[in-house]
Design a protein around this nucleic acid. Structure first.
Length: 105
DNA sequence: CTTCTAACA
DNA sequence: TGTTAGGA
């Protein structure tokens, strides 16, 4: 058994079927820098468990939170630097309505 | 399996 | 803008 979440394990077809996404969509995510699966020598993508979770986060942000792909890039980037936000993402509790709006003057 | 291009909502 | 389809 491989317990390392970084361990490359799934091909794009498997991931696509797993998450209900089309392969092209996942490739587009990579093209936009939202995901970076490792490659085999023959350039086939291999997704780790972390990659899967990351893709699920992207899906969550897009479908539940209504964030566009540019926004997803920003959110993920920031969340990586802020453990609290990262947890919100992981637990799917990144509800905009829970956050304070723009500071009222 | 890959990348690239084009069409559609 | 993002997703899907098709060709190479």
């Amino acid at each position: 058994m491989e317990l390392n979440p970084e361990h490359p394990a799934y091909t794009i077809s498997v991931v696509a079927q797993l998450l209900g996404l089309h392969e092209q969509t996942i490739r587009q995510y990579e093209r936009l820098g939202l995901i970076a699966p490792c490659r085999t020598i023959r350039k086939t993508r291999l997704y780790s468990q972390n990659d899967i979770e990351r893709l699920e986060c992207i899906n969550y942000l897009v479908k539940t939170c209504g964030v566009n792909l540019s926004g997803v890039k920003i959110v993920i980037t920031l969340s990586c630097q802020h453990p609290e936000i990262e947890l919100l993402l992981k637990t799917r509790r990144f509800h905009p309505q829970d956050l304070e709006g723009p500071t009222q003057v």
